[in-house]
Nucleic acid binder design. Structure first.
Lengths: 145, 145
DNA sequence: AGTGAAAGATCCTTCTT
DNA sequence: AAGAAGGATCTTTCACT
């Protein structure tokens, strides 16, 4: 279980994953070797899954996003799931309770792009689409208390 | 606009943001200083928004996730949006077209945690909740073609 | 579990071409 | 954009708390 210092390290790294050890150590009041040890441990136990970059999809041409709820037709659950995994424009998908079996986020170049993708699953699942107008909360950490 | 080499750099960094310049340079067939210049440019123009870590929420005690659709009661749109921004368990929220004005992702410790949060907005908005059972597509990059 | 220091390797940036 | 050099940073180790 992460202690208070681990949590502060995670907060700092979430904001800037390239902070040097010396800087991290100063912020949490430990020495560089200690911080180095803690980071290694956090990575090994999988609490830190990966070091990544956050990309602005609009600057890659994906100026439109949609949230699509997907209800596979009877007997098509597994087929639809495989399909979802293979559509690269789906950058996130959750399998959930309730009628809407899947909830997916799509990155799109324009509306016709959306139309094309929805058409390709129309014979295997029903879909409900919501176009993203704004993002009041961009991906952030839950409370670490 | 990013060229082919920029796109390869983005792909490499998305998988591992700590790859050294030398390694990145070798992969794309350039020298370290060139790659350094490109990364600086990508960061300055905001295509790379940030260097971060990906955290496993379960290991922070958030063993439950929910996707909640939120329909503010008449006249409560702005109030509800402020509320959403202030609930730290909401780690993602999109404002979308359609009846469901907001779609939010909640990180939760258990079911009673969900109950508490939904209760706190029950008098300002209607909600529909879907519990996440699996994540067939974890956050990934859209195609860079 | 952590500190402080020090050595050796690696990495980044600057300068020149 | 490449190559070489200088300076910073990371990691590891060790004796000690």
């Amino acid at each position: 279980m992460p202690d208070d210092i681990d949590r502060r390290l995670l907060t700092l790294l979430t904001a800037n994953a390239r902070l040097p050890l010396k800087e991290l150590a100063a912020q949490v009041g430990l020495s560089s070797p200690s911080v180095s040890d803690r980071l290694r441990r956090l990575e090994e136990q999988g609490l830190i899954r990966a070091f990544t970059v956050e990309i602005d999809p609009a600057q890659l041409g994906y100026t439109l996003q949609a949230i699509v709820r997907i209800r596979p037709l009877p007997g098509r659950l597994h087929l639809v799931q495989r399909l979802i995994e293979e559509i690269p424009e789906i950058t996130e998908c959750d399998k959930v309770t309730g009628d809407d079996c899947f909830i997916a986020r799509l990155m799109l170049r324009d509306i016709s792009h959306l139309d094309r993708i929805l058409d390709s699953i129309a014979d295997k699942a029903e879909t409900s689409t919501a176009i993203v107008k704004a993002q009041p909360v961009l991906r952030r950490l839950p409370p670490l208390a």
